[in-house]
Design a binder for these strands. Structure first.
Lengths: 187, 187
DNA sequence: TGATTTTTACCTAACACTTGGTAGGTATAA
DNA sequence: TTATACCTACCAAGTGTTAGGTAAAAATCA
């Protein structure tokens, strides 16, 4: 549990990137958050691109673990699926932040190649999990589960984006509810 | 049809903002696009915030006209509704750009107040139109049409975001199709 | 064990570049 | 002569990044 400086940098960088994007992440503010000087970050990371790629990698790795845990802890895949939107809700609860992947998808064309790669993997991890769980819960046939999984991932990301721009987490809940009513998510 | 310098600035700024966001919009690159020098932009706009707010205002005004035209040209509101996703597809077709509103929703917390206002109106215009057309096409009851309208707007924005991060317009089409299959959009 | 060297984990100071913005000038047209 | 539609030149602040230093801890050696 003791967090070393490297971990502190990664945690702080993740939060900043979720709030301001890759472009809005700068070494001086980040260093101040951590309690060190900007130049010291280079002791741990050779460049901003490398730091951001590490942040994005850690992000999808954590997400993968969280999703598997959610599934393992649920008695029924349908329950895990129902709770899926909570993972995205959490960012909004914490200072109106966004999913890293959502934010960086917007900035995508300006991202270093190494960062793009990790951001794509985050989407892949989510879609793969959703696809698996949709099949297991028999919401759709295995043949159609991947298409549905992508649709859910995109829609949840859109809901987060819209709710954030209103700084209104109840809007996020309302949108998820509408997805259920409309049939995109199982009721 | 003859575009004056002010209009040229606004058009070029819109394109840049759709591709790189408010943060990625800078006066030197913008001026070069237009064929003038950066300082000359201040002859037309007092600040970057003011320029961006004007861009965003023009953006939702054009969207409002386009949506009303779409509705007027459609023999049936259901047809107008079916073609709604085309308005968002267009940005992706043009150099993988995003809807301004989607991009700036991500950057929202760092936006000048005047820009935030116009970005919100864009969302309002879309939701109001969708709500009206959903009711007219009898897809949902008037009482539920606004909730559904918001859901569709968010989901279409999410689809655009995901397709952009893959630079794959066919993914956008596939996602819209999935929304129809799932029942979020009428088949 | 104590002395020495090396490594760790930072620091200060600066560079080159980009950014939004300003002051003041100038050629053309009304 | 005056307003229009630009321009050059510059400033101050912020950016990623580098060079080179330093105090303390750890490892090595006598």
């Amino acid at each position: 549990m003791t967090e070393n400086s490297r971990d502190k940098i990664l945690s702080a960088a993740t939060k900043i990137a979720q709030a301001h994007g890759y472009n809005g992440l700068n070494f001086r503010d980040l260093a101040e958050d951590v309690g060190i000087k900007a130049a010291s970050i280079y002791y741990y990371f050779p460049s901003k691109a490398d730091l951001a790629a590490t942040v994005a990698k850690r992000y999808w790795e954590n997400a993968a673990v969280a999703l598997e845990t959610l599934l393992a802890e649920s008695s029924d895949p349908a329950i895990a699926l129902r709770r899926y939107p909570e993972t995205f809700r959490w960012a909004l609860e914490n200072e109106n932040r966004m999913c890293l992947s959502g934010f960086m998808a917007a900035e995508y064309d300006d991202l270093p190649e190494a960062v793009k790669k990790e951001i794509q993997i985050f989407a892949d991890v989510n879609v793969a999990w959703l696809s698996k769980v949709l099949s297991a819960a028999k919401v759709v046939s295995p043949k159609k589960s991947e298409a549905r999984a992508r649709a859910i991932f995109a829609a949840v990301g859109g809901a987060q984006l819209m709710a954030r721009s209103r700084s209104d987490i109840t809007l996020y809940d309302a949108l998820i509810n509408s997805y259920r009513v409309a049939g995109l998510l199982p009721a």
